[in-house]
C-alpha cells in the first residue's frame, strides 16, 4: 500500500500520542495507585442491612491508624448521611446497596464508585485537604435520585 510520506509521518506521530497516553495510565496506576475502584466481594442484597459486614454503619478507626467507613446506599439516601474522617490518613470506604444501583461520588475528590446490589464496593484514598465534601449519587436510581446526597467532613489533625 502506498502511503503519502506526510500521512505516514502523521501516523507515527499519532501512534506516539497513543503510546504517551497508554504509558501515562500504566505509570500512574503502578506508581501512585491510579486505579478505579475494582473490589470483588459479593453479598446477598436481601440481607445486606443485617449482614455483619454492614451491621455497624459509619466510621471505624482501625488499630493500624487507618480509617474504615461503612456506608449503605439506598433509595434515596446514604447511611450515614454525614461522615467524619481525618485528613492525611488512608480512608477505606465499603459501600453496598440493598435495592438498585447507585453511585457514590465524593465531589472534588477521586472517589467515584458504582454501588451494585449483590456486591461490596471498596476503595481506599487519602484526603489531603480538610473541608466539607458533597457526596452525590450519580447513577439514576429512581424518582428521588437527585435528592440522594451526603456530606463527607474531613477534619484537621487527630
Amino acid at each position: 500500500m502506498h502511503v503519502d510520506p506526510y500521512e505516514k509521518f502523521w501516523m507515527f506521530a499519532a501512534a506516539g500520542l497513543i503510546v504517551l497516553f497508554a504509558s501515562s495510565v500504566v505509570y500512574g496506576a503502578f506508581s501512585y495507585a491510579g486505579h478505579p475502584p475494582s473490589h470483588v466481594e459479593t453479598i446477598d442484597p436481601s440481607t445486606a442491612r443485617t449482614d455483619p459486614r454492614f451491621a455497624e454503619l459509619g466510621v471505624v478507626e482501625k488499630p493500624d491508624g487507618s480509617v474504615e467507613v461503612v456506608v449503605l446506599a439506598q433509595m434515596f439516601s446514604f447511611m450515614p448521611g454525614e461522615i467524619r474522617v481525618p485528613a492525611g490518613r488512608p480512608v477505606t470506604f465499603r459501600v453496598t446497596s440493598p435495592d438498585v444501583i447507585h453511585g457514590f461520588q465524593i465531589v472534588a475528590s477521586n472517589g467515584n464508585a458504582t454501588i451494585v446490589p449483590g456486591y461490596v464496593s471498596q476503595f481506599t484514598t487519602t484526603f489531603a485537604k480538610p473541608g466539607e465534601y458533597l457526596i452525590v449519587c450519580n447513577e439514576y436510581c429512581g424518582l428521588g435520585h437527585h435528592l440522594m446526597s451526603g456530606r463527607l467532613i474531613v477534619e484537621e489533625g487527630a
Binding site: 501512585y32 477521586n110 472517589g111
Partner: peptide
C-alpha cells in the same frame, strides 16, 4: 486534566 485535576486529588487503591 491528568496533572492539574486527577493527580493532585490523590491515589485510589482498588
Amino acid at each position: 486534566v491528568y496533572f492539574l485535576i486527577y493527580a493532585p486529588r490523590g491515589g485510589v487503591h482498588p
